[in-house]
Amino acid sequence: MKRSSSLTLTTMLAGASLTVAACDDTPAAARWDQNSVAQGEQVETFQYADLDSCKTANQIPDAECDTAYAKALEDNDKSAPRFEAKASCEETYGAGNCVPRGSGGGSFFTPLLAGFVIGQLFDGGGNRYYRGTGLYRGRDGYTTGWGGTLGRDYATGRTTIGKYGIDPPDAVRQAPPRMQTRTSVVSRGGFGGGRGFGG
């Protein structure tokens, strides 16, 4: 009897939490924080500065280099980190590493593409496929537009990245990019102050 009551209460609490989540007007994809979400299982990756470097390395087929590079350029257009101000972008990616983008030639700033990464992934049937995306060089290393960070498997010496940092779920991929702005501004002159950013 006690077990039955406990199960009913647990089910009711789970239902309540789902109801609260359903009442939130913000779409799930928009709530996804690229910098804090679990990036999924680590997968082996290959990092290249450009298309020729990929083909010369002979680590993966040339056709996969072409496909991954094209995808990196596409992702750069759609998902490169966006900043309202050049100064904010350069605080993360370094002086001279941010460019104006968008309609009118400067509605926002993004970091320069510093190369691309190709991950070896497996589908639900255990078949291997490759996925590429762009890389940005920040003060703390290389990251993708999806919030993935390159790491190293010290047991094998191979470069790795979280699966979702290179191949995120469709809901995330289709969500509009988040514009990053300064969260605090000095009242006089409008510059300086904190280094935090918000959406």
Rank of each mutant, 00 (worst) to 15 (best):
R101S: 14
A114T: 04
N76A: 09
S107A: 11
D123V: 09
A57S: 14
N97S: 11
R188C: 10
N35T: 12
E74Q: 12
S187E: 12
G96Y: 03
R128A: 11
R137P: 00
Q34N: 13
D66N: 15
D140M: 11
T110C: 14
C54S: 07
A29E: 15
A68T: 04
M179W: 02
S17W: 11
Y129Q: 01
P111H: 05
A72Y: 01
T156L: 07
T56C: 00
R195I: 06
A63F: 08
Y93K: 02
Y136W: 13
Q120C: 03
T160C: 01
T67V: 10
Q59W: 05
K78E: 09
S53R: 08
E91N: 11
G119N: 08
C54Q: 09
E91S: 09
Y142Q: 14
T92K: 14
G106W: 04
G198V: 03
R31Q: 14
A49R: 13
S88A: 14
P100C: 05
L18F: 13
S5K: 10
A85W: 05
G141I: 09
K78H: 05
S88F: 00
T11R: 12
F83C: 09
S17G: 06
D24W: 06
N97F: 04
G124P: 02
L18W: 10
T183N: 11
T67E: 14
W146A: 12
Q180M: 14
A49Y: 05
Y164E: 15
G192I: 05
D75K: 00
T156A: 08
L13Y: 07
G189N: 07
T159Y: 07
L9E: 12
S36W: 08
I166R: 01
L51Q: 13
D77R: 10
G102S: 06
I118P: 00
C54H: 06
S184R: 10
R178A: 14
K78T: 01
D77P: 01
G115P: 03
G157D: 09
V37L: 10
T143Q: 13
L121R: 14
G106E: 11
F83A: 10
Y130L: 13
Q120F: 01
G151I: 00
G151A: 02
P100A: 07
D153R: 05
E84A: 15
Q174A: 14
Y154M: 12
D50C: 08
G147D: 07
C98F: 09
V186I: 12
T160G: 01
K86T: 03
K71F: 00
P81A: 09
D33Y: 03
A21Y: 07
D62C: 01
D75V: 01
G138Q: 06
V37Q: 15
S103C: 01
Q42R: 11
Q39T: 07
C23P: 00
L7F: 05
A85K: 14
T183H: 04
A29V: 04
N76I: 00
W32C: 11
V37F: 14
M1Y: 12
S79R: 15
S184D: 13
K2A: 10
E91G: 13
R139H: 11
A16R: 10
G145H: 01
L9T: 11
G165N: 08
I161F: 01
L150N: 05
Q59I: 02
K163C: 02
Y154P: 00
Q59R: 14
V185G: 02
T183L: 08
R131A: 10
A68S: 15
Y93E: 02
V99H: 02
L13I: 12
V172C: 06
R131M: 09
E91F: 04
L51T: 08
A49D: 13
R158C: 04
